[in-house]
């Protein structure tokens, strides 16, 4: 499948400490079809839980990028200060994951999501 959008972290980094700056760039290179319009584009950084219980989500950054564009928007740089908690965690009953998400609301057609995971780890 040809990638049309991406989220890339600076230095291809995946591991961050609490309070670090999560930085990188968003790219929208091509549109899925000729008459597609990005009604809304949003970038978010969030954590979510996974396990046997109800899923919980925390959005620590939400940024509206652009609206009503019919041409690829090119590159957009981001820099988000990560909170101190929660840390990435992988237990038996509960896991906590972090990811950066680019959401494109397309018309006509369906919304698309590009998720890039990363870790928030306590220092030594």
């Amino acid at each position: 499948m040809t990638p049309l959008a991406s989220v890339k972290f600076d230095d291809d980094r995946r591991d961050y400490a609490p309070g670090d700056s999560l930085s990188g760039r968003l790219e929208v290179t091509t549109m899925p079809h000729a008459d597609a319009v990005v009604v809304k584009a949003e970038f978010s950084v969030l954590w979510y839980t996974e396990g046997k219980g109800d899923q919980d989500i925390g959005v620590v950054h939400l940024e509206r990028l652009w609206e009503n564009r019919s041409q690829p928007a090119g590159e957009h740089h981001f820099s988000v200060r990560l909170p101190l908690l929660p840390l990435t965690y992988h237990g038996h009953l509960l896991k906590i994951h972090w990811l950066a998400r680019l959401r494109l609301d397309l018309r006509p057609g369906q919304d698309v999501l590009v998720d890039e995971p990363f870790n928030v780890l306590a220092g030594d």
Binding site: P3, L4, P32, Q110, L113
Partner: peptide
């Protein structure tokens, strides 16, 4: 490398 793909809703 970053994993990128289209996902639909």
């Amino acid at each position: 490398s970053p994993s990128t793909c289209w996902q639909g809703i």
